[in-house]
Amino acid sequence: MIAIINTGCANINSVRFAFERLGKTPTVITSPEQLAGYERAILPGVGHASVAMRRLVDNGWQQAINEYQRPLMGICLGMQLLCESTEEGNVQCLGKIPGEVKALDVGSLTSPHMGWNNLSIQQAHPLTKGLHKDDQVYYVHSFAHTVNDATLVSSEYGQTFSAIVAKDNYAGMQFHPERSAKVGTRLLQNFLDWQL
């Protein structure tokens, strides 16, 4: 049983369809009280971090996510919200994954970082099973988690940044696995298979 947390800050359908292609039927939940009843959960997100974080706090999601002890994965902005803080709006986040989210230093490259990019595995983990160094995933972002001990996989766009992070039962993917073709499908399956 998979819950997709609907905070009003994401395109829920693309994530739902991606799991349906894997033979799973996730439930979109709109109340924090529902979360404890699911075996694993997804926190998707797009938009501005300060707006999304305020919605999480105001609607009671922060406490529910803090108390959740099963696998929970953030996607894109959802991953950033699981970290300690973000420069986007200078807000404190959920603090489940160590590290800060900062604006990408893209130099002369275009921002936001949008398109396909390679992955570089930093640590072996159940979430990285079957990944290869030439695999590519699809990004749309201008802020990113700085590489640290929680980083499982990194990518590079002007600078090196975290692509996949994990700490305890919490994980995050900066890219969009639901838009990343076969590689994304494999990564979502890894999340379904992840045993704590």
Rank of each mutant, 00 (worst) to 15 (best):
M114F: 09
S14T: 13
G99M: 03
W61M: 05
P112Q: 08
T30L: 12
F19D: 00
K24Y: 14
G115S: 03
G99W: 01
C76L: 01
T25W: 06
I121A: 02
N66W: 08
P32G: 06
S31T: 13
V28N: 07
A41W: 04
I29H: 07
W116Q: 03
Q122E: 15
P26V: 01
P98G: 06
L109T: 11
T110E: 14
F17T: 15
G23D: 13
S85W: 10
A36W: 08
E33S: 14
D58F: 08
N59V: 10
L82P: 00
N13I: 05
T27Q: 15
R16I: 07
N90T: 08
R70Y: 13
F17W: 11
S120A: 13
P44Y: 02
Q62S: 12
Q122L: 15
G95E: 10
R70H: 15
Y38C: 09
E33K: 14
G78I: 04
L43G: 03
P44I: 04
R40Y: 12
R54C: 07
T25A: 09
I65C: 01
M114A: 03
V101T: 13
A52F: 00
V51P: 05
C76M: 01
C93Y: 03
T110G: 08
A18R: 00
S111Y: 05
G99D: 03
C76H: 00
N66G: 05
S31N: 15
G47C: 11
D105H: 12
G60P: 08
I12A: 01
Q69M: 13
G95Y: 09
I121V: 13
H113Q: 05
L56Y: 02
V15I: 10
